[in-house]
């Protein structure tokens, strides 16, 4: 009985927080837009019964998504932005995690604190701060002009570069923490052993440190990649008007067109795009574990 309850809790959790909302979104995706409140049709009505209700649903909105290249372009562009920013987050986060893991033991809690500290400030305020730093009259340009590196201000704000900066900054802790925990567990004598067996520092890093922090790298990359794919706030605040992301398209369908069904269809496809790689990844992990 106790075991049943223990297992039931996460499943109820999953059901309540994921499956039920997903079912609602899916249902809206299969409905038609209408001038009504809420703005779609059919509404579920007990009197008519479930069969009649289901008969009204169709896949029109998904067909629609294939007919306009906007959606594919937005998905691809989101994918590109997510891949690139995950890569840069890894590039920036790994050395920090590495440094933290190599730091003297008594410093580590402090370093960890410093990584988490920004979370204590509102995310929006931090993004607005970046607007102040990156704008044409902002601190960065003023500084660069002051030291004489540039004579004309660089246009960074409202471009994709600003989006990347914002994303890397915001999601850095999500990369650092799992990588750090993987690196912290790494036995220093493994590196020495690799060097002892003929590796230079660099090859030891490639052949031992990187493979052994692989779980942290993968976990961190997923923690960054998945939310970035659907990111809306950072591109809309820091990005230019030509920063095309699926989150923005979804927003537009939902808010500008009031077309909740199409917006829901976009969301469902986005979710499928995310779920498929995750499932594949987990399968792969499982297989590896079984093989061992």
């Amino acid at each position: 009985m106790r075991r049943f309850v223990l297992i039931a809790i996460p499943y109820v959790w999953l059901l309540a927080l994921f499956l039920v909302p997903f079912a609602i979104v899916l249902k809206i995706a299969l409905s038609d837009a209408a001038v009504a409140r809420p703005p779609y049709f059919p509404q579920f009505d007990w009197a008519e019964g479930i069969a009649a209700f289901i008969a009204e649903l169709d896949f029109e909105n998904f067909v629609w998504l294939t007919e306009d290249d906007l959606y594919w372009k937005a998905y691809l562009s989101s994918l590109k932005i997510a891949v690139i920013s995950t890569f840069f987050t890894l590039l920036a986060g790994y050395p920090i995690a590495y440094g933290m893991a190599r730091a003297p033991e008594e410093w580590r809690p402090t370093l960890m604190m410093l990584v988490i500290l920004p979370f204590w400030t509102s995310f929006l305020i931090r993004v607005y701060a970046w607007m102040g730093i990156l704008s044409n009259e902002g601190f960065l340009n003023q500084f660069l002009m002051w030291i004489g590196v540039i004579s004309e201000p660089l246009t960074i704000l409202n471009t994709n570069s600003a989006v990347y900066i914002g994303i890397v900054y915001t999601y850095l802790p999500f990369m650092i923490l799992p990588v750090y925990s993987a690196l912290e567990r790494l036995d220093g004598s493994l590196i020495e052993a690799a060097e002892d067996l003929g590796c230079s520092r660099l090859t030891a890093f490639w052949l031992v440190t990187i493979p052994l922090s692989k779980t942290g790298i993968i976990a961190g990359s997923f923690l960054v990649f998945i939310p970035v794919l659907g990111e809306f706030v950072i591109p809309s605040l820091l990005g230019g008007s030509d920063t095309l992301m699926i989150g923005k398209v979804l927003w537009e369908e939902f808010f500008s067109n009031r077309d909740w069904p199409v917006a829901s269809a976009v969301a469902v496809v986005l979710l499928l795009l995310l779920v498929i790689p995750i499932v594949l990844f987990q399968r792969n992990q499982q297989k590896q574990q079984e093989a061992e």
Binding site: D187, E192, E195, D196, G198
Partner: peptide, 14 residues
């Protein structure tokens, strides 16, 4: 260390 004709067996085996 990587150029020495010396090898080491670590206490933790590594």
């Amino acid at each position: 260390p990587n150029k020495r004709a010396v090898n080491m067996m670590f206490q933790s085996y590594a």
